[in-house]
Design a protein around this nucleic acid. Structure first.
Length: 330
DNA sequence: TTGTGTTTAGTCTATT
DNA sequence: AATAGACTAAACACAA
């Protein structure tokens, strides 16, 4: 196969799906959520292919955002005027891609829930998520456990995201991170062209030699990590896994970016917390009384008949609240 | 008006 | 062959 020149090759379509690209963009943002326009910008900045035919792929991308349950919509705060909402990854979608690779999805992520046990309002689920996040962070702080990369996994220490800790070379953290260390010991610096973090599977063993030629779909080199993507692993606000600890740890504060408050009901985030230790009542003293198990929220049009997979007990309010939630990897 | 978000429908490709 | 996932197109509604 003749290898095209770099200039033409760089305009080839990247091997990522729109879901992957969107996930990358969202993951690259410090607050793990982006408005649509910023997602566009991220993709166009990194992938020259998408600087053309913008109407086509942006329509597809919007379709994916709406269609896939792995993306949740987060309303703008009053002090964040602008068009459209922010988009974030569903807290439980970290398992979507095989080995964390954004090249290939495992199964379609789908949220299901029973009608009568779901939270009555999206905000309820969001608040519940915040509580769980706080619990987990507290538990982590106590145990000294490392946080996983994805904020979703901050809610989800049950191990869904990357139970083994292995980070696939195509995982977003490796694609966008300044530096990725191959399991074999090879290290790729962000000072090298970005393609270093964009290997083909069969290039993994010869990555060192590929640094010079570069992987052409992506632009940016060190500039890829710009002000919009402060993924710095050295920053004081980030854990060893790149998780912006400050926002999460201060989630209860007013001055920090809120933990995503989904517009779409996202109770399925709840079942992703099976390993959650018993709730600590003291941490939930500010639990919203609105947390309610009663709802007639309907599942999405993609939903299948409800198949209860887990029942969780919420410590919120004046008593136990059983949330039957369902997830489906169809 | 434009950007955003939702939904439906069709095609193509890879997998089972 | 059947199925699922991905992609594309289009229509429509809504809000800034």
């Amino acid at each position: 196969m003749p290898r095209p020149g770099r200039n033409t090759y760089s305009d080839q379509k990247p091997p990522y799906s729109y879901i992957s690209l969107t996930a990358m963009a969202i993951q690259s943002s410090p607050e793990k959520m982006l408005p649509l326009s910023e997602i566009y910008k991220f993709i166009m900045d990194r992938f020259p292919y998408y600087r053309e035919n913008t109407q086509r792929w942006q329509n597809s991308l919007r379709h994916n955002l709406s269609f896939n349950d792995c993306f949740i919509k987060i309303p703008r705060r009053p002090d964040q005027p602008g068009k459209g909402s922010f988009w974030a990854l569903h807290p439980s979608c970290g398992d979507m891609f095989e080995n964390g690779s954004f090249l290939r999805r495992r199964k379609r992520f789908k949220v299901l829930k029973s009608d009568h046990l779901a939270p009555s309002k999206p905000a309820d689920a969001a608040q519940y998520l915040q509580q769980q996040a706080k619990l987990r962070l507290s538990a982590l702080a106590a145990s000294g456990t490392h946080l996983p990369q994805m904020p979703a996994a901050a809610y989800n220490l049950g191990g869904v995201a990357q139970p083994s800790g292995f980070k696939h070379p195509f995982a977003i953290e490796n694609i966008i991170a300044r530096e990725y260390k191959m399991p074999g010991g090879l290290a790729f610096s962000a000072m090298q062209p970005v393609p270093a973090a964009y290997p083909l599977p069969n290039q993994l063993t010869s990555m060192g030699s590929s640094l010079g030629t570069g992987w052409p779909h992506v632009y940016g080199s060190a500039g890829m990590i710009d002000s919009a993507t402060p993924i710095s692993m050295a920053g004081g606000d980030y854990s060893a896994y790149g998780v912006p600890l400050k926002p999460l740890c201060h989630a209860a504060g007013q001055t920090l970016p809120a933990i995503p408050v989904p517009i779409k009901p996202a109770p399925a985030a709840v079942p992703a917390l099976p390993a959650l230790p018993a709730p600590i009542p003291a941490l939930l003293s500010n639990s919203p009384p609105s947390l309610s198990p009663t709802s007639s929220q309907t599942a999405t049009s993609q939903s299948s008949p409800a198949t209860p997979s887990e029942t969780l007990t919420s410590p919120a309010g004046d008593g136990k609240v059983n949330w039957n939630v369902h997830f489906l990897m169809t």
